[in-house]
Design a protein around this nucleic acid. Structure first.
Length: 309
RNA sequence: CGCGGGGUAGAGCAGCCAGGUAGCUCGUCGGGCUCAUAACCCGGAGGUCGCAAGUCCGAAUCUUGCCCCCGCAA
């Protein structure tokens, strides 16, 4: 079986490795997004999947638009393609190139959280469980028939980074299992029910008038990027992690009810409060609440600005 | 030339504008209090102030060059 793997970010790397391990030379090419300028310096940086493919010695193809490169793909004479956070919409022309189909690894329990940023969205949505689904790719966005799925709990100790890492490993195991079924010909597909599509996430200012859980989920869902942030005392803070805590203080939401090395940084919410355990001031490095409070940039009683909605 | 913040004990910061004894919170070490403690009290150690040159009687502080870190935006 000749396989093409299409993926781009870190999330897709374990799947690439797993397929390589299982099929070796059967993995005939890796398609990934072009190198892009990164950071302040604008340094041209290859996507993680490219780096791994190069390391494995698998040929890499980088198309500005995959739909404009049908002949290059056809020349691979592949039987099947696996996609995993590739980052480009496939056209029917592309799908038709693979007799054994195009299969997608999606980081949610479909039909929930179709589309972009399913991991972050699941956390922000307060879900207690999510997972990975292997589905047949069709033209609709993540609407294809499902082959396999596996779930995992979302813990209060999870942020988007930890959950993504766990899901990527689950996805890697699942795709190998799926490929075995497909190869054997015993693949039984299941139609998706009524679901919903989520949008990609953006840097978001925290509205502390929401409940402590909503605030905590927002912060964790947007960490380690693009972050939930808030402003107070002329500072802009990116929040890396927060947990819900009890709070009976009768103060307005957004008020700092504790800011000390021993108590941490606690902010009153519409209901309850959150303890910001890790954060990053603009211009500074990521630090613990303890370190931040030692610098005394915020005192108890300070107030976070209300986001302009 | 995209905009901006920063580099001062192990950590996080103040001091710089108006040059003149190195400060704060925490950690750490030692002692004390206590049934006990991450609590409290007392005491100590620990810093070429990013690097280099310049101005000056004197530079963390002013001038110039360089290195490094980071936020926003792309």
């Amino acid at each position: 079986m000749r396989i093409v793997f299409a993926g781009t970010p870190e999330f897709a790397v374990p799947a690439l490795q797993a397929i390589y391990e299982a099929y070796g030379g059967g993995l005939v090419a890796v398609v990934t997004q072009p190198d892009k300028p990164q950071g302040r310096k604008g340094v041209l940086t290859p996507p993680p999947v490219k780096e791994e493919a190069v390391r494995l010695g698998v040929p890499v193809l980088q198309f500005a638009r995959i739909r404009d490169n049908i002949s290059a793909l056809a020349a691979l004479h592949a039987d099947l393609m696996v996609t995993c956070a590739y980052g480009q919409i496939l056209t029917q022309d592309v799908l038709d190139l693979f007799p054994m189909g195009v299969w997608n690894i999606h980081a949610s329990l479909l039909p929930a959280y179709r589309g972009a940023a399913p991991i972050a969205r699941a956390i922000i949505g307060g879900e207690r469980e999510t997972g990975v689904t292997i589905m047949k790719t069709e033209l609709g966005l993540d609407t294809g028939d499902m082959l396999l799925a596996a779930s995992t709990p979302i813990y209060d100790s999870d942020d988007c980074g930890t959950l993504e890492e766990r899901l990527s490993r689950i996805g890697a195991e699942l795709i190998v299992e799926a490929l075995e079924k497909i190869e054997r010909g015993g693949a039984v597909l299941q139609k998706q029910g009524e679901g919903f599509t989520c949008k990609k996430v953006a840097r978001t200012e925290v509205d502390f008038s929401r409940t402590a859980r909503e605030v905590s989920c927002l912060i964790r869902g947007l960490s380690p990027s693009p972050f939930a942030f808030a402003r107070a005392g002329g500072l802009t803070l990116n929040f890396w992690f927060a947990e819900e805590v009890e709070c009976d203080a009768d103060v307005p939401a957004g008020t700092v009810v504790a800011a000390s090395a021993k108590e941490g940084l606690v902010v009153k919410c519409g209901e309850g409060a959150v303890s910001i355990t890790e954060l990053q001031p603009a211009g500074g490095r990521r630090m613990t609440a303890r370190d931040f409070c030692n610098g005394r940039k915020l005192e108890r009683g300070a107030r976070f600005d209300q986001p302009v909605l």
